[in-house]
Design a protein around this nucleic acid. Sequence first.
RNA 1: GCGCCAAUAGCUCAGUUGGAUAGAGCAACGGCCUUCUAAGCCGUGUGCCCGGGGUUCGAAUCCCUGUUGGCGCGCCA
Length: 560
Amino acid sequence: MYARENIEQKLREGLRQAAEKACEAGDFSLNGQELPEIELEVPREREFGDYSTNLAMQLPKIARKAPRQIAEALAGRFEPIPGVVETVEIAGPGFINFRLDPSWLTQIVAQVNEMGGDYGKTARHAGKTYNLEFISANPTGPMHMGNARGGAIGDVLAELAEWTGYDVTREFYVNDAGNQIEKFGDSLDARFRQLTGEDFPFPEDGYQGEDITEHVKEYLAEHPGSEEELKAQPPEQRRKIFIDYALKKNLERMHSDLADYGIQYDVWFSEQSLYETGAIDKALDMLKKSGSVYEEDGAVWFRTTDYGCEKDDVLIRQNGIPTYYMGDIAYHLNKFETRGFDRGVNVWGADHHGHIARLQAALDAAGAGGKLDVVIMQLVKLVQDGEIVKMSKRTGKMITLTDLIQMIGKDAARFFFNLRSPDSHFEFDLDLAIRESNENPVFYVQYAHARICSILRQAEGFDWSDADLSLLGEPEEIALMEVLSRFYEEIQAGEEKMDPSRITRYAVDLASAFHTFYNAVRVNTDEIELKKARFALISAVRQVLRNASEILGINAPERM
RNA sequence: GCGCCAAUAGCUCAGUUGGAUAGAGCAACGGCCUUCUAAGCCGUGUGCCCGGGGUUCGAAUCCCUGUUGGCGCGCCA
């Protein structure tokens, strides 16, 4: 158990008992009502102590007494906890402020050094399986900036889930079926015809990127003499050959690009496989049982309006081909029913948010409701030379994930995309990003780690295992230990709110507290006992910086 | 028209289970390297928390409403 959890539990218990005693003694009465949940917070101002509660200000309505009077009764009857609570004070309109025994903080240093790479982990969700689907970029072309953001967010969310005890599966949904694949094939075939001298118009809504032409050229280079053979084939056959070839190439490239980005998937789930395994039919049967499926105009519909949506949606088109929506339902039922995941989280771009309600509706109808959360990330707006760059996979004008990593590096990219919460609108200034490669906060964090490594390197062989941590009492040391104590809370909050940016901000906070400490006191001091204590402290800081870097998927360099 | 997300310092953004004096980075200016990494530290100031109502001991935070911006509302994915 982490120190803060322990202390908070004791404070709550103490307050509960104080309230009981105060009622018995007739200080005030709850008039038959339950004591509200006790809220504890860490006050912004140091002078208000280490913990504060507004309990006395929540009671006047029930007890019909002034908050100050209630606070006085509670504080007066609060049983001292030796070694934990030093003082109890009343302040302002009725806050009760607690000041803790300083020893609680030094214990954290020992705990971090003992737990090492496990410090920050909890078993809160132990035994539960968690499926995290992210990026799921169209395999018809290279990945873009939006995919880069989704990748950074998703991978850290997965990590946060693991740190809170979930058994996590990272998953990429490969959209290798449907209309865009047809378009992909048409585009490839059109380029083939043009390359081989035919005067053939390029489809208006085709993929105009260079990569399409490249695929065709590569195919021809790899299959010498195949040109005539291909020309003799019927167009559908030829399209299929090109699609199979280019899709495979694209997926291989995605694998390696994502590996460069530090992302490793456990499952690449093929949309096409849903058709081949009968998962679509099975899902449709499950939906039919809800009684909300009907036929009209030759198509099969799902009455999403039964579930609060604005209009119904088509499951099977007039031409008999299932919609993307139907596929997505089958896919998610596969996650929850077939594979039995306890929880699923998807990271989607804001342009897909309209899809959430109807997917949830269908899952409810099929009896798999309440298991899926969707994190919506706002789209990335790319700015270059002070102007917004329109990106489009269709026209092929875009900055790819690979370009980005080449420009600013994996660490900076991952950190940068997680600097803001997913639902904040993101303006990515390319000129700034290139310039920022040296100003990016990621270097600030990494520098703190490298500095600590440097100090420890110079004292190789120095043994501080018997350090007396109570010697740590400078304000900068206390501030640093307080940041250390917050780590597990940030992980929990990040997981709960599905917001990875908590961790980047925490890492910056910790690095900042360290840099301040470093400039204020000398670690490698002549006073041996103090030196031992400070070595124990910076060793703990280094450990937590490493753990945070692990979650963020960035390097913690030993030298810079 | 309807729905989702947003609006806080010159810029980019924190702060949202309602709390005490609304914060950080960048940018600007000044200071700190004869001892552990100056990619660092310290100091100097700026706010109609988009407007208007409401809820209450207390609102940047919750509710209603208006404005502005982004996105969505296909038998596309």
